[in-house]
Amino acid sequence: MRALLYICIGIILSILESAIFTFLPFEFFKPDLGLPLILYVSFFLEPQVGLIVSIFIGLTQEVFSSAPHGSIFFTKLSLFLIALFLKNKVYVDTKYSFSYYCGIFVIIESFLFIALSLVARGDTKNMLNVLFYTLPNAVFTGFLSLFVLPLVSYVNVKLSSRG
């Protein structure tokens, strides 16, 4: 039930991301709204929920991207694994520290994507382009995670109180 709800939120956020940013004139900043959700479920919920949510967010994001097959799915699942290893090792006490980790994970995701492109396909064509957008994306994702965190925390509290 909990996983299903987070999957729905993830799909809605991904759809929002794809639909809304067509109307905005800038493309220098593009947040990854699925990432805060993956980090939240990985850090604060059961690992099986985190795995299921990461799989669905990865798949949904790939449906809305021209990225090579499996690449976004791979990076999202890797981020879940990294977050799982960092669970209880990092200190997330406020929404600002959460936002900081979101930014860091966007940077990690970019490097993972580049590494995967190199190893799996020997592709270096898009490397500079990915690096070019890494920092702005990290900053913007970190900023928007300040708003995503209260939303998912609220859902979690509501679910816990019902359970």
């Binding site: 639909a19 940013f21 067509t22 593009k30 990854d32 994001q61 809305f64 021209s66 994507f113 382009n129």
Partner: peptide, 15 residues
């Protein structure tokens, strides 16, 4: 009708 665009700005794709 164009309904969306690539979720990542690493790629240029429209939906």
């Amino acid at each position: 009708h164009v309904t969306g665009e690539d979720i990542k700005n690493w790629f240029k794709c429209i939906i």
